[in-house]
Design a protein around this nucleic acid. Structure first.
Lengths: 342, 342
DNA sequence: CTGAAAGCGCTTACAG
DNA sequence: CTGAAAGCGCTTACAG
């Protein structure tokens, strides 16, 4: 690889050519007071002309800011590559970053527990200014870890606990309300909820809300726990759909798009007609829901917007804001072909 | 946000407590000669004990290496979030990075041409040690740009052009051979290929190979160009499947999983039975292919392994290697339910 | 408004 | 084998 030595343009070069001090160049570049408008203009012009971009390492070292945020995803590759959830989330983060000229340091660790170490290292190494966290657990060790290291962080979660970490909170009760009201209007009375793993706080919150809100509406609620995988969705669906006619649910609310697809397929295999004999709602919309036949009714949570809000909150925290909680807007139910009268 | 000031542990701290020089600490930490085994051990122990992690900014500034590689994806969010291609690719990159303790700086720009600017900025800012590039175009401006800035880079591509940039090359002819031989063994003679946009070099190479290799096998080949979108797949499929019985292809090879799904659906809508009247092969496997009914026959290209190989090559180049071309292994055809006798 | 200087936390010749 | 010192490219009080 015949590679030219990259001759870097520095503020010293600019200072020399303009015959001023490096400090003045720095002030001019950063829009700080301390230079005349004229000097500032000359600096900016020359910087533009020379294609100057400040060394991120030098900035990070002297100003202790990197302009970079970190996201560490500790999930099974199988699930994560299939779901589409994270890719849309990343896009939302990037939209904000593109405008703010920030960067994203990404790590996909898988579910081996290595993620804590990555948070610790990146924080200590000063690689990032803050983190966005997903998939909160009970007594999530990431919270005390980041707090103890003084690292700004935003948890995207359903839990409004006040533990001094930033939180972008999804009001699950509103989502649950939208789904249940839809089913109620169609006359459904026996409903089952196939959730993801309840080790995730958001899944537990959803399950609780679902039961509470369903009961309040006079519905018979049943909750079973899945793993997000296709197989898991198929297994649980099979169990539920082979119950006696009197107890069998007439509607299933399914924790993600993959399991919802599996449910749809299982119903077909069992000869259960959708939506005539069974209604299905997927918790998260995706292409899978779109290309399924019949097309799956699903919640659109505005994932990209949500991710953008999370990033916004994180940047505000990094900037010194003390407002740690914000709420994301409720999504909209895309009523397609898998929900009908009970 | 009540945040503790992160008190950083530095090599000065270690040097002071051990009453040696910072240089010795640095040598010890980096496994360089210049310190006794005993001193090295004491340094390593203390570093461990104090939870020392070197400031990445300081390392980057003085040693001019960041341990970070960059990936900039300039694709339509719609397509990219649906495909699953990139998420699996990212996972492959991360697998290598996890072992090499490297990091990934990621930017998703969308198709607005902003990507060139990101490459330029990140290079000049010294944010990354190198780039992995995807989706090569004709006269791709990224190549001369990165070459001129002395930035190591690996293009994941189908083109073995020798332009001094690193290349992980997919031998498309082998993929084409696998697919065509499968169809030939089933007796197919009229085959259409719905490719992605031929502005991408790999799509053009595939289309050429497909025609050449098909003709050599005595097949009547037809090529149409799609956009990777569902709608595009549906449109092209509709056109092809409504041709007169004598010219209508008996098998379709489709450029990605989304278009293949659309083709499958369109066939169903038109009453064309799959695989009895039409065989379909998807160029890339994914969940979509797996959950489709009938399940789509598709190529598994080992995307994660491929991404790992690309990252490996990039690290070698960064390390000074002069071997710029490597080939990725051919994938395997997952024969499922959409291919059958002509 | 402007400049000289110290400092961020490392690495790396260069002497001893 | 070990230490003192310069340097990477910025930012930021501090004087003028």
């Amino acid at each position: 690889m015949s590679i030219a030595r990259p001759e870097r343009v520095t503020i010293s070069d600019i200072a020399r050519r303009l015959d001023i001090s490096k400090a003045s160049v720095s002030y001019a570049l950063n829009g700080r007071p301390g230079v005349s408008a004229q000097t500032r203009a000359r600096v900016l012009d020359l910087a533009e002309e020379l294609g100057f971009h400040p060394s991120s390492a030098a900035v990070a070292l002297s100003a202790a800011r990197t302009g970079t945020i970190g996201i560490v995803i500790a999930r099974d590759p199988q699930v994560i590559t299939a779901e589409g959830f994270y890719m849309r989330t990343l896009f939302g983060v990037e939209q904000f970053l593109n405008d703010a000229d920030g960067s994203l340091l990404l790590r996909l660790t898988g579910e081996n527990g290595e993620d804590l170490d990555v948070y610790r290292r990146w924080a200590r190494q000063g690689r990032v200014d803050g983190f966005i966290l997903y998939d909160e657990h009970d007594d999530d060790p990431r919270v005390p870890l980041l707090l103890s290291m003084g690292m700004p962080a935003v948890m995207v979660t359903s839990s409004p606990i006040d533990d001094h970490i930033g939180r972008l909170i999804t009001p699950e009760v509103e989502t649950v309300t939208v789904m249940l009201d839809h089913l109620k209007s169609l006359g459904h009375k026996r409903i089952a909820h196939i959730s993801g793993p309840t080790t995730y706080i958001h899944e537990r919150v959803r399950a609780q809300m679902m039961t509470t809100e369903g009961n309040r509406r006079g519905m018979r609620m049943r909750h079973v726990e899945g793993t997000y995988s296709y197989e898991s969705g198929a297994t649980e669906a099979h169990r539920l759909l082979t119950l006696s006619a009197r107890t069998r649910p007439t509607a299933l609310i399914v924790g993600n798009d993959i399991m919802a697809t599996a449910v749809l397929r299982t119903a077909a295999d069992l000869g259960v007609r959708v939506p005539e004999e069974l209604s299905i709602i997927a918790w998260d919309d995706s292409v899978l829901c779109h290309v399924a036949r019949p097309q799956l009714t699903a919640m659109d949570h505005g994932l990209m917007e949500k991710a953008r809000l999370a990033t916004h909150l994180l940047f505000d925290l990094i900037g010194g804001s003390t407002e740690v909680h914000r709420y994301s807007p409720v999504g909209t139910l895309l009523v397609r072909e898998t929900t009908g009268p009970a």
